[in-house]
Computed example of a mutant assay.
Amino acid sequence: MKGVKFLVAFVVLALASSFAFASDPSPLQDFCVALDDHYKNGVFVNGKFCKDPKLVTPDNFFFPGLNNPKNTSNPVGSTVKNVNVVQIPGLNTLGISLARIDYMPYGQNPPHIHPRASEILFVQEGTLYVGFVTSIPDNRVFTKVLNKGDVFVFPIGLIHFQFNIGKTNAVAFASLSSQNPGVITIANAVFGSNPPINPDVLASAFQLDQNVVKSLQAKFWWDNN
Score class of each variant (00 low, 15 high):
200 D>Q: 11
42 G>T: 11
111 P>T: 04
73 S>C: 06
149 G>S: 12
59 D>L: 12
99 A>P: 01
50 C>F: 05
193 S>A: 07
79 T>E: 01
211 N>L: 12
191 F>S: 01
81 K>N: 02
148 K>R: 14
120 I>A: 08
69 P>Y: 13
135 S>Q: 04
217 Q>P: 08
28 L>I: 07
119 E>R: 09
139 N>F: 09
101 I>G: 00
19 F>Y: 14
157 G>A: 10
40 K>S: 14
209 D>S: 08
188 N>T: 13
52 D>M: 04
100 R>W: 12
154 F>T: 00
14 A>H: 15
66 L>V: 15
4 V>C: 12
27 P>Y: 11
38 H>F: 15
207 Q>D: 08
178 S>I: 05
120 I>N: 07
29 Q>L: 05
204 S>K: 10
139 N>M: 07
141 V>F: 08
118 S>A: 14
13 L>P: 10
119 E>V: 13
7 L>T: 13
143 T>S: 04
20 A>C: 15
93 T>P: 02
146 L>M: 06
215 S>D: 15
80 V>I: 09
139 N>G: 08
211 N>G: 07
31 F>L: 08
221 W>A: 05
224 N>D: 11
158 L>V: 08
72 T>M: 09
20 A>F: 14
19 F>R: 11
113 I>M: 06
225 N>D: 15
51 K>L: 09
218 A>Q: 10
89 P>N: 03
43 V>T: 13
58 P>R: 12
83 V>H: 01
86 V>G: 08
131 G>L: 03
66 L>S: 14
177 S>M: 03
147 N>T: 14
217 Q>F: 03
62 F>H: 14
191 F>P: 02
25 P>W: 12
3 G>E: 14
123 V>W: 00
26 S>K: 14
164 N>D: 12
140 R>H: 12
214 K>F: 04
31 F>E: 03
202 L>H: 00
213 V>M: 01
219 K>R: 13
201 V>F: 08
146 L>H: 00
216 L>K: 02
88 I>F: 04
2 K>P: 13
20 A>L: 15
122 F>H: 07
65 G>F: 07
150 D>Y: 04
141 V>I: 15
190 V>Q: 04
225 N>P: 11
202 L>V: 01
216 L>M: 13
111 P>F: 03
212 V>E: 06
102 D>Y: 04
200 D>N: 13
123 V>D: 00
173 F>V: 08
197 I>F: 02
216 L>Q: 09
11 V>E: 10
168 T>Q: 12
105 P>M: 08
202 L>M: 03
82 N>D: 05
121 L>R: 00
112 H>P: 04
197 I>M: 07
185 T>A: 03
204 S>C: 05
